[in-house]
Simulated assay, not measured.
Amino acid sequence: MPTKVMNQAEFDALKTTLKARWNAGLALSKEDWKLVAKLVTSSSAANTYAWLSQFPAFREWVGARQHQKVKEQAYTVKNRKFETTVDVQRTDVEDDNLGHYGTLAESAGQAATDLKNDLIFQALAAGFAGTCYDGQYFFDTDHPVFPNADGTGEAVSVSNMQAGAGAPWILLCTKRAPAPIYLQERIAAQFDSLTSPQSGKVFDEDVYSFGGRWRGDAAYGFWQCAFGSKAALTADNFEAAYMAMMKFQGDGGKRLGIVPDTLVVGPDNLAAAEKLLKAAQNANGSSNTNYQKVGLVATAWM
């Protein structure tokens, strides 16, 4: 039997088929990260986040406007580079044995969505040791809040965490303009290929290569929109976290209007979360005051 030699049109057709399967794979996994994070586009190697020390607030207009110089604090998040590669054996091309590569391409596309979920939820879980804009850990006991709106005066320490030794659970406010966490994207997931028989890869290794590429990272937003706990997920601990977030103030004593709306748990806290939020009655038959109090995001990525 003569050796099969693919012409450029056939290579293009193979690429089109694999790219279609890649795109199908992109839609397979749910983009759960969108439930807790907002997208920020990046146009350089890194983004610098210069956050105001408090949320903007209105006051009664008496006399002239008050032009306050609000303190800014910043931190920088570098874009990381991620890839996944599928090698198509040249012998499979010669033998017209290409069917299973479609499944691999689809899995690679699915992995691009999985990556975003992984980045966001792993960043939340790591917030007890990850630094945010004020120089403190994202979940910490001593975030500085100042008595004056311009960030001056003697700061008091505010906590957005509960200590413990268990699996983390996170309470979030996602309905304000500032977000608790962001997906920083420099380059959207893209599909590339290396199919020229004259390339060094084909010559040296006898393979054609297809793969995906993405650049970006997760970036912490306002700690005031999040509360992290490693304590047991009990009604008492949940209610303490909920009330603490509602009482958060910005510099100058301004109420921030924070109302938690989302509880994020991993597999270890799923049963406790469902008992807390989805049971209309407690074990003793009394009404469960936390029933559907917030939405539940249960993720395998945390």
Rank of each mutant, 00 (worst) to 15 (best):
A111E: 06
A112P: 03
D114H: 03
L115Q: 07
L115S: 10
L115M: 15
L115W: 06
K116E: 11
K116S: 00
L119G: 07
L119I: 11
L119Q: 13
I120K: 05
F121L: 05
F121C: 07
A125M: 02
A125G: 14
F128Y: 05
A129S: 15
G130Q: 07
C132H: 15
Y133E: 01
Y133T: 08
D134K: 04
D134P: 00
G135C: 05
Q136I: 09
Y137S: 13
F138D: 11
F138V: 04
F139M: 01
D140R: 09
T141A: 13
T141L: 06
D142S: 14
H143E: 06
V145T: 14
V145C: 14
P147F: 03
N148E: 11
A149P: 08
G151I: 10
G151R: 10
G153D: 03
A155T: 11
A155I: 14
A155W: 12
A155C: 10
S157T: 13
V158L: 00
V158R: 05
V158G: 02
N160K: 03
N160A: 07
M161N: 10
Q162L: 15
Q162M: 14
Q162S: 15
A163E: 13
A165P: 04
G166Y: 02
G166V: 05
A167P: 09
P168G: 05
P168A: 05
P168Y: 08
I170T: 02
L172S: 04
L172I: 00
T174R: 04
T174L: 02
K175Q: 14
K175G: 13
R176H: 11
A177K: 09
A177P: 01
A177R: 04
A177S: 03
P178F: 10
P178W: 09
P178L: 12
P178E: 01
P178N: 08
A179Q: 14
P180K: 01
P180E: 03
I181W: 10
I181E: 12
I181A: 11
Q184L: 15
E185P: 03
E185M: 13
R186G: 11
I187N: 13
A188G: 10
A188I: 02
A188K: 09
A189K: 01
Q190A: 04
F191E: 03
F191N: 04
D192M: 10
S193F: 08
T195M: 11
T195W: 06
P197T: 01
P197Y: 09
Q198T: 06
Q198Y: 05
S199P: 10
S199R: 07
S199F: 08
S199A: 14
S199I: 13
K201R: 12
D206I: 10
D206E: 11
V207P: 00
V207H: 04
V207A: 00
Y208V: 02
Y208N: 07
S209N: 02
S209V: 12
F210S: 08
G211K: 03
G211I: 01
G212K: 03
G212L: 07
R213L: 07
R213F: 15
R213I: 01
W214H: 12
W214M: 12
R215E: 09
R215C: 09
R215P: 01
